[in-house]
């Protein structure tokens, strides 16, 4: 089993309506490629975060489909045009079927 993933998302606490803000999302994850073999010569099975989604009040802001070509501890920076106050929900989906979800409140000025 994987060690627990530690997600971190950075976005401003407050923003103006219509402002384009940057959102930075990082999670600890080995992103095992499936190309490696262990000391006994056995192939280490692939285990990656394959999808990351960001929704604001239920609407899709950004989605990334990732492969083993993405570095360990995948980091993504993307943007959102602030429609109003609400909740940002970021979800990381991995090959084990695990989903890590984080929620962040955004206030408007």
């Amino acid at each position: 089993m994987m060690s627990p993933s530690k997600p971190r998302v950075r976005l401003p606490e407050t923003a103006a309506v219509g402002e384009i803000i940057e959102i930075r999302a990082l999670i600890t994850h080995v992103m095992e490629t499936g190309n490696r073999t262990d000391a006994e010569g056995r192939r280490v099975p692939r285990n990656i975060i394959h999808t990351v989604t960001a929704h604001f009040e239920g609407d899709l802001v950004f989605k990334a489909e990732l492969s083993s070509g993405i570095s360990a501890n995948p980091f993504l920076a993307f943007h959102m045009k602030v429609p109003g106050p609400g909740e940002l929900r970021v979800a990381w989906h991995d090959d084990d079927g695990g989903i890590t979800i984080e929620r962040y409140k955004l206030k408007v000025e």
């Binding site: 384009i20 803000i21 490629t33 190309n35 604001f56 609407d59 899709l60 802001v61 950004f62 989605k63 990334a64 489909e65 990732l66 492969s67 083993s68 070509g69 993405i70 570095s71 995948p74 980091f75 993504l76 920076a77 993307f78 943007h79 959102m80 045009k81 429609p83």
Partner: peptide, 29 residues
Amino acid sequence: FSTQNPQAHVATFHFTPLSGQAAVQGRMR
């Protein structure tokens, strides 16, 4: 896309008008 990696399709990023900007940063192998 990577033209030499074992996995050529590295990622696909999806955007919407809510994205405000079609821009993304990250780290690849």
